[in-house]
Amino acid sequence: MRVHSVNHDTQHHFSKPPVPEITLIEGIGVEGDAHAGATVQHLHLIKVDASAPNLRQVHLIQSELFATLAAAGYEVGSGDLGENVTTYGVDLLNLPTGTQLHLGDTAVVTLTGLRNPCSQINKFRKGLLKTMLHKDAAGEVVRLTGVMSVVNTGGIVRPGDQLEVVYPTEPHQPLDLV
Rank of each mutant, 00 (worst) to 15 (best):
V19R: 00
G160W: 01
V108C: 13
E26A: 15
N152I: 04
L43M: 08
V40P: 07
L69N: 04
L45D: 13
D33K: 00
D105G: 00
N94M: 10
A70C: 05
V151S: 04
M1T: 08
N54L: 12
L111F: 05
F124I: 01
P159H: 00
E164M: 09
G29N: 08
P17K: 03
Q57I: 09
Q173P: 03
I22R: 06
M148S: 03
G98N: 06
V142S: 15
C118E: 10
E140G: 03
V151N: 06
Y167M: 15
G27I: 08
P20Y: 01
M132L: 15
V147Y: 01
A138W: 03
L101R: 02
H44A: 11
T145D: 11
I25V: 15
T68K: 15
D9S: 14
A138N: 11
Q173G: 04
L129P: 02
L129A: 14
Y74E: 08
Y88L: 12
L128Q: 01
H42Y: 13
Q100A: 10
E83G: 03
S149R: 00
L65N: 10
L177Q: 11
L24E: 07
K130T: 13
L92S: 10
Q173T: 11
T110G: 07
P174H: 03
Q62V: 06
P168H: 01
K126S: 14
F124V: 01
V109M: 13
N122P: 00
V109F: 05
V76T: 13
A70N: 05
E21W: 02
S5I: 07
R56W: 02
K47S: 12
I22P: 08
D80L: 04
S78M: 08
L43N: 08
G79F: 04
H134W: 12
Q41F: 12
G113P: 06
E140K: 10
A72C: 03
A70Q: 11
E21R: 02
L43Y: 07
